[in-house]
Design a binder for these strands. Structure first.
Lengths: 112, 112
DNA sequence: ATTTCTTGCAACCAATTGGTTTCTTATCTA
DNA sequence: TAGATAAGAAACCAATTGGTTGCAAGAAAT
């Protein structure tokens, strides 16, 4: 089963859960209270995120507190960085092209 | 059909396509050459990304060049920012708790 | 004019997803 | 000890996904 952080981010309910857990650890019941879907549906979302190691549990009696593995979120940032670097490279190339065009234009305007 | 930029990012093939298109516009055939899946499979990925307005086309004769709508990627960055803000807030709260603990400890060590 | 090339579209398929309901186990609490 | 509560597991379902193959339409080349 393909299961990475990007997958975890793909669903809006899971994104909301991530934001909630960014503030503080919560139990499945407490999370489910915030949504209109069943506790079990929430539990399935939790499982997806646990499987990609974005969530960890901390059992406290019969309650299980889930908290974010913040480091996992860095995979997203890392990919975005990679993306922005490639983008920057493209603009550098574009700059070169524009400079060359300008030179040609100057040559035309002021022939040697 | 739910179709947002996060969905577009969820598939590894699509992420690779995004990185390729960050460098330069490409035709479906050129993209498909880089993968082991059929051209039609690539076309379906392209369609997903076009539907969420992450890609735009530019027809040139019988070829269609696809390029990134870079602004759409900002939705990801924006969400990440939101996430990091909440996270920072959590750490501020943690700091407060630690400060309070320290004060209590001092009171114990040096009772008034 | 015919053939070739690029692309999109449709139908199909198996696997996955996001949800449900029901049931079990473990831990509190009265 | 009996009942309530928290949470995971399993079975089921409809919709979506990621892939395939085959076909049609438009542009280019011969």
């Amino acid at each position: 089963m393909r299961r990475d952080v990007f997958q975890a981010l793909a669903d809006p309910t899971r994104r909301a859960i991530i934001l909630m857990l960014a503030v503080q650890p919560m139990t499945p019941n407490a999370i489910a209270d915030k949504f209109d879907i069943s506790r079990q549906a929430v539990s399935k979302h939790i499982r997806v995120m646990t499987e990609c190691e974005l969530l960890r549990q901390n059992q406290q009696g019969r309650e299980i507190y889930y908290h974010l593995e913040v480091d996992k979120m860095k995979a997203i940032e890392k990919w975005l960085e990679q993306f922005k670097e490639l983008l920057a490279k493209r603009f550098e190339q574009l700059d070169e092209v524009l400079i060359q065009l300008k030179q040609k234009k100057n040559e035309k305007d002021n022939p040697v």
